[in-house]
Write a protein that binds this DNA or RNA. Structure first.
Lengths: 187, 187
DNA sequence: GACAGTGATTGCAGTTTATGAAATCACTGT
DNA sequence: ACAGTGATTTCATAAACTGCAATCACTGTC
């Protein structure tokens, strides 16, 4: 038999997800999470930089996907449209199929300021990555950052709607709508 | 003589500012800050919710000013212009005169991820406050949030430039320029 | 088949952040 | 005089994180 049960990281993530859902983030200790996963507190911190990170395993994957899509996009497409197309591609791949899980996670994060803070931090990192990808396409750095910020604004507006129970339109469509809203709002 | 030296809060802020500047945020303990201010660690936490908050004393004041300006603005002005005008008014009051201090603080925050995270959090709170102020003017909540987000994008772009040593134009002017950049970028 | 090397996990000691509860005591108003 | 206020302090404690050394199934090599 193997020395340890496999998939330690996934088990920790699952345990954390459950416990945060049951008791809330701040009433759950890292020791508790580790115990439910059949591991040690020390091992938790070997895998995650801090208690919050356990909820953000997918964000790096998401970021890579977006950047890849932007790089793959036709150079003739206006920058902001390129960003939104990339978001739409990622929406299909990473959001649409896991609506239940995404909404559940959204609810957990929404219930705790520390987690919201980390979410903002991830969003900022994604913004910078998008800006870098746009800059690689030849866009001026400052305009690139502005465009990336506008793209994230679109993303936020769309996700906001998409996570509401009443909403049934696909995220892809909501992204288009949000982009249109932004354009009329800003002009 | 008074039982305690006056201005405990200010002394803590000043001590923290100095120490973060000298040794960096993470190599400074709360006990150290309190000691330099002639107070106790416990007293520090009586005044500030956590170690980071000591650097964000002005953000609530800033937020109030912005919201006040927006409410005072003519109802005929397009929403985004109202927001940028409010930011310009606050820029004159709270930034232009303290350029040195603002830049120093900016440098400290820039050097530490935890502080950046908190900065983002304050920014998000300000965004929400602006959106609420716009909603109070009759704007649809979702459009209000989008407009507020666009306004903060303008603010960020302008501050970014303003804190660069080479830049000499007043913040007010940079805000106008950034708004123009956003408009051409998004359309 | 022995055997050195790898790497995920663990135990433990220690620092730091943060909080709750009770005590102090100059100052205030009556 | 004297009770009440409130900023501060002391003490105790939980919980988050870190550094370091040790474990030991697994891997490949000779």
């Amino acid at each position: 038999m193997p020395r340890w049960e496999p998939d330690g990281v996934e088990r920790l993530q699952a345990a954390a997800f459950e416990l945060f859902d049951e008791q809330g983030f701040e009433h759950t200790t890292v020791a508790e999470i580790a115990q439910r996963a059949g591991l040690t507190q020390r091992t938790f911190f070997n895998h995650f930089a801090d208690k919050r990170e356990v909820l953000f395993g997918l964000s790096s994957e998401f970021q890579q996907e977006i950047v890849r899509e932007i790089a793959a996009c036709a150079d003739t497409l206006p920058p902001l449209d390129a960003v939104v197309r990339a978001l739409q591609a990622a929406a299909d791949t990473m959001f649409e199929e896991r609506r239940a899980a995404v909404t559940r996670r959204h609810k957990i994060v929404d219930a705790n300021p520390e987690l919201q803070e980390r979410e903002l931090s991830k969003r900022a990192a994604l913004t910078d990555a998008i800006a870098a990808a746009l800059h690689a396409r030849g866009l001026d750095p400052e305009i690139a950052l502005l465009t990336a910020g506008a793209g994230m604004l679109v993303q936020q507006t769309a996700i906001q709607r998409w996570t509401q129970p009443a909403e049934s339109r696909p995220l892809r469509e909501l992204l288009s709508a949000a982009l249109h809203s932004l354009r009329t709002t800003v002009s």
